[in-house]
Every structure is written in structure tokens, then in C-alpha cells.
């Protein structure tokens, strides 16, 4: 056999590099998700998966299917803007597949109302606000007769809270 070429070690190196490179490309092809969107560079299935996240809040429509009467009352004023789940919590805690699973949440104390209606300098002027217990009565003369704990709901129907 003739003496090896002075370049034989380089040929072997090149062969190794080519084999590794080809192997890498094969692995890369295998490892890239099938649904890969090459134009916008993301995994296409991610969108489908994101849309499949379970719902927690159902929105008013899901409440109305059962609570037509309350919905009617609520439609009047001025709490029309407030969704059922704002005060009652998410529907998943109350019903599943159209069937009641637990009593809907409601905090009947004053805290529930004051969460929005407690007076605060950061709140818009026109928004109805009431001061904390003991100071009640600033705006409404009748409130002066109240003690510190009587719930607002004693006199006001929360779904239609007009005086």
C-alpha cells in the first residue's frame, strides 16, 4: 500500500464533520414540532392549545339561562353595568354543564358594597361613594340613623339598588 496522503487526516476530519452535520440536520428536522409555522415562526398547535384553556367565568349569558327573573330586575338600573360574577364569583363555583353544584357566593356584609362604593380620592367624583362605618350619612340623611354594621342590603336590593 502506498504511503497515506499528507491530507488524509483532513479528509477524515471532513468526513466526521459531514456525518455530524447531516446527523444534526436530521435531528433538527425530527425535533421541530410538526405544526411549526415557518412564516411567522411559532408552533401552530400553540394557538389551538391556548384556546382550549378551560373557562372559569361564564359571563352574564351563562347566568341568565337559569336566573331569568334576576336578570330582568338587574337590567333596570343602575347596576346594569355590573356583571353577575363581579359580586357572585365565577360560575364554575356554582354550576357545571347547566347544573347547580353549589350555592353561589355572596358576601352580604357591608364590605361587599364598600369594595366599590367606599369613598376614596382616587375614585371618579360622579361615582356614588359612601364613607366608612360611623361616618355614614354624609350624603344621605337617612344613613345617619344607621349603626356601624347594618348591611346595605337590608334596605337596598343589590340588583336594583335605587333608594
Amino acid at each position: 500500500m502506498a504511503a497515506p496522503s499528507p491530507r488524509s487526516h483532513l479528509y477524515r476530519l471532513l468526513l466526521i464533520l459531514v456525518v455530524f452535520g447531516a446527523g444534526f440536520l436530521a435531528v433538527k428536522q425530527w425535533a421541530t414540532p410538526d405544526s411549526w409555522n415557518y412564516e411567522h415562526w411559532y408552533r401552530g398547535d400553540a394557538v389551538v392549545e391556548a384556546a382550549a384553556q378551560p373557562l372559569v367565568y361564564g359571563g352574564n349569558d351563562s347566568c341568565k339561562t337559569c336566573h331569568k327573573d334576576v336578570a330582568k330586575l338587574w337590567r333596570k338600573k343602575p347596576h346594569r353595568k355590573v356583571a353577575c360574577e363581579t359580586c357572585h364569583g365565577p360560575i364554575v363555583d356554582h354550576a357545571k354543564a347547566g347544573k347547580k353544584t353549589a350555592v353561589a357566593f355572596i358576601d352580604k356584609t357591608r364590605a361587599q358594597c364598600l369594595n366599590c362604593h367606599l369613598e376614596g380620592i382616587n375614585r371618579p367624583r360622579a361615582f356614588p361613594q359612601f364613607s366608612k362605618q360611623g361616618e355614614i350619612g354624609k350624603l344621605v340623611p337617612k344613613h345617619k340613623e344607621l349603626d356601624a354594621v347594618t348591611p346595605c342590603a337590608k334596605c337596598h336590593e343589590a340588583h336594583d339598588p335605587r333608594p
Partner: peptide, 9 residues
């Protein structure tokens, strides 16, 4: 050495 065990000048 990648199997090239002689060092060619």
C-alpha cells in the same frame, strides 16, 4: 489521530 498514525512531513 483519527487513525492516521504516521506523521507525513
Amino acid at each position: 489521530t483519527l487513525g492516521v498514525t504516521t506523521y507525513h512531513p
